[in-house]
Write a protein that binds this DNA or RNA. Structure first.
Lengths: 305, 305
DNA sequence: TAAAAATATTTGACAAAAGCAACTAAATTT
DNA sequence: AAATTTAGTTGCTTTTGTCAAATATTTTTA
């Protein structure tokens, strides 16, 4: 634990410096960092109040009041007394305010550009993935919407390994599975890729800012489609991504004229089980399997298409 | 590119808030954030100067001068005129200053603890890994020392997939290899794990804050040891990690009484090639291989033990 | 239903933080 | 030896942020 705390503190110190450097530039403009943060919030929200700002940005309300008065005086912002509650003033940017934000955004974009410009494409991507990971963990997946997730089905270098890795840590964390399970997953991917037939086999990958957060696949066996590798990063559950992936795979199976679709799963994956059943899958048989964990029932579910 | 910039800006905004919350607490102490940052730097460095502080922390030298005078007055810090350069004053903490830092560190640790306490162990680990990734990318691997890297050889869930993933993106980035290569790597791991004999086969993993940054393995074939999966995260090169991993694998092979050690590599991995030759490996044969890329020579190197 | 409590915002007074520019003293370059 | 550069200091100023009290409105309570 102490090692982790030290690593986090080290990161925080470094990142404080980086943010400081980025903020320095903003200060070249006529606005201070706090002012820009406030303007950004007003711009983002339709219904913004002073209370909201002081809460989310942790600013003194008196300080804010004066700042907002300043914005109003310089024509960036207008205050409108709420019709429902006379204590509240709704804040919004004027056209001038919006233009100002555009300029500030442009400058900020340029800044970030020059930060990541020296990096190669892979590094940039890894950087953004890591940031996305941090955000998703610290916000526990809130603030992510289904539309933010892109689903693709071209397989790129790194995908297979990363999805195997996800199977490893997620099944370990949630169900206590051993390395043997991950090895089994790797095996299934080896088979998948060596027998891969475009148009009949497919792997879908759900990505948030290029970071893989979910997967599902279809493997053809004559007229039957096998559903595999259905997995969601725990911080991306509850937004409908699982349903969307499942639907995508089922739709593909229908379009490809498979007669039925089946999948093997285990008794402890109750959440996924419910999703399968809702989609129309029914149990075909069950048997015991102790490869990855004790007391495990292996189930086969199937659905006619 | 714009997507990445937006993601980074989103992260920066969120992290500004998080750091702000953490800093709030520090301000409960008698010291301001800037003061704590300065004290921390003086504590960290043996030879610290005002110039260094104003450069690294981006602070006004006049402001710093006064702050340092304050520290001296309250007995936290002493200034000593340099014997080599009369303009320079070396800064160091007094015992009182060190004790103050201890208290501040303790408080900061508690703060971070309460930040990550609600998370589960895997999330904490993933958080730290992501932070380590960001630091390593933005500092291009500077500031990492060999001692920071831990080498282990127990295989944990996620390891196999992650190392496969690393092979995928690194060989893609550096040599343009296709997904076929990653699939081949996955295949080798499947074989490795299904034939695994403790004491004869081994996989070493180099970790920085639990993030995998390098690997190497030995697979036994009767009296010959095969060296495999030698890989370094690009941002962790040049610190001697490659040499250490290679040495570890060679030592193990000697101790296990293998008569010789061999490896297969390709002509384009010139850096690794040099390392192998320095270690005593010599070329046995070469042949063409176009599986992963055009115009590739496959080489076998070997060394008697 | 009127008084009390809570909430959103404003205002005044003030202190701390930060920045700029001119300045000293030592070292380096010309 | 004079000019320039560098490290750090000092005086002055502005900006930023805080605290407490005040105002206006709404909600709760008796």
């Amino acid at each position: 634990m102490q090692n982790k705390i030290n690593a986090i503190r080290s990161f925080n110190r470094r990142y404080t410096n980086i943010l400081g450097l980025l903020d320095k530039d903003i200060l070249d403009s006529d606005y201070s960092l706090s002012q820009v943060r406030v303007l950004h919030e007003i711009d983002k929200l339709e219904q913004c109040t002073s209370k909201y700002l002081s809460d989310t940005l942790c600013m003194d309300s008196g300080y804010l009041s004066r700042m907002l008065a300043g914005f109003e005086k310089s024509g960036l912002c207008i205050k409108q007394k709420s019709s429902e509650d006379g204590r509240i003033y709704n804040l919004s940017l004027t056209n001038k305010g919006k233009k100002t934000m555009e300029v500030l955004n442009l400058r900020s974009n340029e800044q970030i550009f020059s930060l990541i410009n020296p990096l190669c494409e892979t590094e940039r991507s890894n950087l953004v993935k890591a940031m996305t990971t941090i955000e998703s963990i610290l916000t526990q997946g809130k603030n992510v919407k289904l539309d933010d997730i892109r689903i693709r089905h071209n397989i790129k270098p790194g995908d297979i390994g990363y999805i195997t890795y996800m199977h490893g840590w997620i099944y370990r964390m949630e169900y206590g599975y051993s390395t043997a399970f991950e090895s089994y997953v790797a095996q299934t991917f080896c088979e998948f890729l060596s027998n891969y037939k475009a148009g009949y086999d497919r792997l879908w990958i759900g990505e948030h800012n290029e970071k893989i957060v979910g997967s599902i696949g279809i493997v053809g066996h004559k007229d039957k489609a096998q559903l595999r590798w259905f997995l969601l990063d725990p911080n991306y559950r509850g937004i409908g991504l699982g349903k969307k992936l499942l639907q995508t795979a089922v739709n593909f199976s229908k379009e490809t004229n498979y007669k039925s679709i089946y999948l093997d799963t285990t008794s402890d994956l109750d959440k996924a089980l419910g999703m399968y059943q809702k989609m129309g899958f029914t149990k075909v048989f069950e048997k015991e399997n102790h490869s990855w964990k004790d007391d495990l029932l292996e189930l086969r579910l199937s659905m006619d298409l």
